[in-house]
């Protein structure tokens, strides 16, 4: 009898010790779309697919307010890293000089990068199909290096910036050989 009582007590204590209460809340993304999280808690299954739908054990799915989420998870959400993003800059034909339009765009890119804590950057240069492949390989690498220079100037460590030249291999606008296509003369800047 006593053995059974102790056994029950141990089981209860063990049950208590392992029992935590968890809350799961799905959030809308910046475009206002909400995905789906399926919470399986023993036999209990909650499908969360509405903005701010919340799952807690032993209760039906509830809806929280944005304010409640901010209050409960503010410090955690603030610690999220910046979302990966990308930019494109365009170049004057056969040079590593930015077009007039992209000079303005560059200032926006630099401002955005300054706001990010420690960005990792990959700059990939491209050319159009004017000229031979070897020259374009060199030119695309030069363009990427030029962009790297701009980023280093505003204080991004060179070690965090990788560059590559893809020559005319990855045309944004597919063309025949020797076609002057401004949209192909570009550097893509991927940031995360």
């Amino acid at each position: 009898m006593a053995a059974i009582a102790i056994g029950v007590l141990i089981a209860l204590l063990a049950g208590c010790a392992s029992k935590t209460v968890d809350t799961v809340v799905v959030l809308p993304d910046p475009q206002g779309r909400t995905g789906t999280v399926v919470v399986q808690r023993g036999d209990e299954r909650h499908v969360l697919d509405q903005p701010y739908a919340a799952s807690r054990p032993g209760a039906p799915v509830a809806r929280l307010s944005a304010a409640e989420v901010r209050q409960s998870f503010g410090a955690t959400l603030e610690a999220l890293p910046a979302r990966p993003t990308s930019f494109v800059l365009y170049f004057v034909t056969a040079t590593d000089e930015l077009t007039e339009g992209s000079k303005g765009e560059l200032q926006k890119v630099l401002a955005a990068l300054k706001l990010r804590g420690v960005p990792d950057v990959v700059a990939i240069g491209h050319t159009d199909t004017v000229g031979d492949a070897a020259t374009n390989d060199r030119l695309s690498a030069q363009r990427a290096e030029r962009v790297k220079g701009f980023l280093v100037e505003i204080g991004i460590p060179a070690g965090r910036i990788q560059t590559a030249g893809r020559g005319e291999r990855e045309l944004l606008v597919p063309t025949a050989s020797n076609v002057d296509e401004p949209r192909n003369r570009r550097v893509e800047i991927n940031v995360r």
Binding site: V21, D22, T23, V26, D29, V39, G42, P57, L77
Partner: peptide, 18 residues
């Protein structure tokens, strides 16, 4: 979590374990 398992179908979400 110690009591749940979540399948994620592309979304943003938060979790608290108390």
């Amino acid at each position: 979590t110690p009591s749940s398992i979540m399948g994620v179908r592309g979304t943003e979400f938060v979790v608290r374990v108390e």
